[in-house]
Design a protein around this nucleic acid. Structure first.
Length: 285
DNA sequence: GTGGCCCTGTGA
DNA sequence: TCACAGGGCCAC
């Protein structure tokens, strides 16, 4: 489900609700949703204070007192949900965390829970030290954050690389956070065919792509992400950026720029929608 | 680099 | 019944 904007939205929700609270309990309904076994998970969390919650790539990472880390990857259908006190159970809730109350602005807030919900079960949770976290395959291979890169620095990451530009955008070891939706939307804005070979794209055009990626991600964050079906923020609300899609999920419908029908193809195993007319032909046929 | 594969749910 | 879905890993 989430790409960078959705993970960022959830991390911000959690960062408003959880710092200053202590872990009190962990209930593991589906052991395979955690990379560590239940006892180790509880050991790594018990009594620790939540210091901050941030995003790394598409993952949500908690910093805990005593140099602890807790990380989640939602993959296709995962959710992190802050339930109301009397909220009815939600199907596919694999992990249930309990946090202490906290004092905030002179007010005592009651304890809160956090649910990890994941119908397709591809997502994961991990607790451990910073070094153990960085050693995970996902974090070990994580590239730069696109929001931190200037268009020129972005272009430098892709210049002279072999392969189709969309497949490279999806490669998290180059730039971390762009997925199938935002790859297509960014390429459309930059007027680049998703099947163009990266090495054939002039630096100025790659820089335009860097600018487009940044704009699309920031606009989506401002909309609290995109909801196709599963995605919700931590409070359970849908995002709004799906209403602004120019190409994703719109194959065969008119291009919002030129009116010609949008085409679809498959790249890196993912459905890909683009406007052949606006993007022009590949730099080299 | 590309293609299965890990799963459940949904819609054609 | 089948194809497909915001991802990423590992074997060809």
């Amino acid at each position: 489900m989430p790409e960078l904007p959705e993970a960022e939205t959830v991390a911000r929700d959690l960062a408003a609700a959880l710092p200053g609270r202590r872990f009190e309990s962990v209930q593991v309904n589906r052991p395979r949703s955690a990379l560590s076994d239940p006892a180790a998970l509880e050991d790594a969390l018990q009594g620790r204070l939540v210091e901050s919650v941030n995003r790394r790539g598409k993952a949500v990472v908690f910093a805990l007192s005593g140099e602890g880390r807790l990380a989640f990857h939602m993959k296709m259908s995962g959710r992190l949900h802050l339930p109301e006190a009397d909220e009815a159970p939600i199907k596919h809730t694999h992990l249930v965390f309990g946090f202490s109350g906290r004092e905030s602005g002179g007010v005592i807030e009651p304890p809160r829970g956090l649910w990890f919900i994941d119908p397709r079960t591809f997502g994961w949770c991990f607790a451990g030290t910073p070094a153990e976290l960085d050693a995970l395959t996902y974090f070990r291979n994580l590239g730069a954050d696109p929001l931190d890169l200037s268009p020129a620095a972005f272009a430098a990451q892709y210049a002279n690389r072999r392969g189709r530009i969309k497949a490279l955008l999806l490669n998290q070891s180059i730039i971390a956070g762009v997925g199938n939706i935002y790859a297509d939307e960014s390429l459309f804005r930059a007027r680049i065919r998703p099947d163009a070979q990266a090495q054939d794209i002039p630096p100025a055009k790659l820089a335009r792509l860097g600018k487009a990626v940044r704009e699309v991600l920031l606009e989506s964050i401002a909309c609290c992400g995109s909801t196709i079906s599963d995605y919700r923020n931590a409070k359970g609300d849908v995002g709004a950026f799906q209403n602004r899609f120019a190409v994703y999920g719109r194959a065969g419908r008119p291009c919002p720029r030129c009116g010609k029908p949008l085409e679809s193809t498959r790249i890196a195993g993912r459905s890909t929608v683009f406007c052949a007319s606006c993007a022009g032909q590949p730099e080299k046929p």
